[in-house]
Design a protein around this nucleic acid. Structure first.
Lengths: 209, 209
DNA sequence: GGATTTATTCATCACGGTTGAAATGGTGGG
DNA sequence: CCCACCATTTCAACCGTGATGAATAAATCC
């Protein structure tokens, strides 16, 4: 009976905000962004739907808040940067795959990735995070104009792997074990980072060498 | 006049279906899937919104129908397969960039890509097209189990380039000219297609610091 | 202990996709 | 030629969505 009784603030100190966040997190992971309605979140948190707007402003705000408390993938990857450049491809790949293969951290990441494509604003956020926290450092270590480009193409390769393995689930990539991937993909990363590029003249064909 | 008089079939033989498709195509490209409402499409086609459901079943159906009449990117890429394997990276990259850089073909492709991430069913479609029309052939030419994996990783690299350049618009990739990209990226593709992979022992290695 | 701030519910809006019924033109069999 | 049937079209309504503003009650501050 204490249930649906009138309006006004509830007694005690129920951490409603956390409750909502928790319910939202579960539902977003289970049903995706579109598949999760604010009313459903409110229901799961046993709260009125208007409270979500009150606390988080909007559904996107709620989504952003749930993302904020999931492990940041770039954080993980950045820790691999300082080491020996020569072994960076293996280390970066290993760290990346580990983060995304573990459902605990991977599922939120996939959800976020979906959100990225959904919302242009989210896309800005990821782009800048990727540049500022990762590629800029890498570019600096590589040096010069070429360094910036090499770093970006490195990022493209990483992104491609994630996209095909976790979002598109393309076979056989999706079911290969991570060591196999590291072994086969690292040389390509290495080529972009350190490999010589063919002379400008050698465009259309493979050129000599 | 023929004006907005009552209900019932209109006189003559107006190809309403085409009108709707045309309007939908324009709006989807301009405003994206979410940003395009059925009522807006109906308005632009000068038709009642219910007609869309009548002809295409649902908004997704309409989206699918508009996609069906845009140039197929895989078709383009597949034409590059038969040639000399040694020059495949350059040829494939060039063809890919050309298709996506031209707004005329590229914009629909970006729209489709957004749709892919949006809808799991659409994702299946792309995955199978990519595998059946492209990677399977490439895998066969490369041969063996490794061939399948090399082909898939090749696809991942291509996908990564598209994702970062056209969807995420990561700099400096987004503003590099296509020749530059071909020059710098082709060696990496080559590494995945033909390069030797390090012996199994050398795996996470890094180990011997 | 009153004023203010914070938290909560309720009622309601505007909008989006979808549906069912009614109306109207086209078409073919008799 | 007329009437039954089918295809097309509009209209009105439904239901679910995210969002907002007013009313209300507890907590907090001075």
């Amino acid at each position: 009976m204490n249930k649906s009784s009138g309006r006004g603030r509830r007694a005690g100190a129920p951490d409603t905000r956390e409750q909502i966040l928790d319910a939202a997190r579960r539902l977003f992971l289970a049903n995706g962004y579109e598949g999760t309605t604010m009313r459903a979140v409110a229901g799961a948190a046993d709260v009125d739907a208007a409270l979500i707007s009150y606390f988080f402003g909007s559904k996107r705000g709620l989504f952003g808040a749930t993302l904020a408390l999931t492990a940041n993938p770039l954080e993980v990857a950045r820790q691999e940067l300082p080491g020996d450049l020569a072994t960076l491809p293996e280390r970066a790949l290993t760290a990346l795959l580990q983060a995304w293969d573990d459902p605990r951290t991977g599922e939120p990441l996939v959800a976020m990735l979906r959100g990225v494509v959904l919302d242009p604003g989210m896309s800005d956020l990821v782009r800048e995070a990727m540049h500022g926290e990762l590629l800029a450092h890498l570019a600096e270590r590589l040096g010069g104009v070429e360094g910036g480009r090499r770093a970006a193409l490195f990022g493209a390769q990483m992104g491609g792997l994630i996209f095909t393995r976790y979002l598109l689930r393309l076979e056989p990539i999706a079911s290969m074990n991570s060591q196999e991937i590291v072994r086969m993909y690292a040389p390509a990363l290495r080529a972009v980072l350190f490999g010589p590029h063919p002379g400008r003249a050698a465009l259309p064909h493979t050129g000599r060498r």
